[in-house]
Amino acid sequence: MAVLPAPLMSLTWTDHVTGRQGFLVVDRLVRGVSSGGLRMRAGCTLDEVTGLARGMTMKEALHYDPDRAQGRYIPLGGAKGGIDCDPRDPGSYELLVRYLRAMRPHVENFWTTGEDLGLTQDLVDRAAAEAGLVSSIQAVYPLLDDEASARERLADAFAVDVDGIGLDELVGGCGVAEAALAALDRAGVPHAGTRVAVQGLGTMGGATARFLSHAGLKVVAVADVKGTVANPAGLDVEALLGARDSYGTVDRAVLREEDRELPGDAWLSADVDVLVPAAVSYAIDAANQAEIRARWIVEAANMPVRPEAEELLAGRGVTVLPDVVVNSGTNAWWWWTLFGDIGADAEDAFAYTRRSMRDLVERMLARAEADGTSPRAAAHAIVADRLPVIAERFGWYR
């Protein structure tokens, strides 16, 4: 595991109206800026946000290869925000605005943020404007060669629509799917007919299911807050995605006669090869890991597998592809686009994401094999190699 200093900054905010708490952890600044989304969920804690911020430092480092010619995007530091509130709460939006108003000096100066669990980018943008911010990523603007062109390019990219779904909602799932496909390819497992279960059909889980289905894999179970929907012969992924609400909950009216409704935790024990937890953190623990029958767990969510569960899974021959690699594509896409490495084009974005994610996953798995460690340990080892180089070249704070 990469040995890193304590977080640079850790804040707990208490809302004067509701008494609810919000958190901001800045793990590192690189070139004076940090990157990391803002989540909202009931039960969110400072420890959770601290772990997520450390993960963002790692994701940024993993997308910087000091031995290769780099694009325009240079890594930032890692950070994360969190609010302890159910996003379905009637007062959640006003709470979000008050949180962003309180965090405004940090967002203006060194924390770039965006959507995460429980929040959409549209909602973050609207609340940020109401809180008096120019943008949720305005702290990065001084690093751009041409701010006006960069902002226009990112706005154009967010306006790209692919079959009724925004490019920004798809690119992260494209990266998760490519991570899974790279692992299958390395193991010599054909895509066609490989069975998949996905927990969560929000932005990340829905897009992952879509790309895996397009690659020939068979999505046989998906879970949302209402429960699990399963079909051993394969679900109609497009129909399910088209029947979601803004929280990723599927309207059961679209289910076919052969689709079955099962309890919420049935996705865990589904007879699949690939399991994709794409919803909440800490979904898989030491107790429920025993139900898992999959060969691979692909962490689309942040921190869905507890460390003790991962150790037990490894003992049973189950490989966990870690979140710091698997779901890093969304964050990287923002910066590839803003800095000008890619344009506002879906095929360009998907191709760049696939190449980058495949290279990273293959490098991680090769390191794990060479070192005799887990993929997560290998990812951390790569981070440990790269962070000192980043610090030497760009500094932690300046």
Results as ranks from 00 to 15, higher is better:
V3E: 15
A6H: 11
L11A: 09
T12S: 14
R31C: 11
V33Q: 10
R41F: 13
T45A: 02
D47Q: 15
L52T: 05
M56H: 02
M58C: 14
M58K: 14
L95T: 07
L96V: 09
V97G: 10
R98I: 07
F110T: 11
L119D: 02
T120Y: 00
D125A: 00
S135V: 02
D146G: 05
D161I: 00
I165K: 07
G173P: 15
A183T: 05
P190C: 09
P190H: 05
V198E: 01
G205P: 10
A207T: 01
R210S: 12
A215D: 10
L217M: 13
L217G: 10
A223Q: 15
D224Q: 09
T228R: 09
V229E: 00
A230C: 08
A233V: 05
D236E: 11
D236I: 12
V237M: 08
R244N: 03
D245F: 08
T249Q: 12
S269Y: 04
A279E: 11
V280Y: 15
A283T: 13
R293L: 13
I297N: 06
N302K: 02
E308G: 10
E310L: 01
V324D: 03
V324R: 09
D348G: 09
T353R: 04
R355Q: 15
R355V: 14
L365Q: 09
G372D: 11
A391Y: 14
F394D: 00
W396D: 05
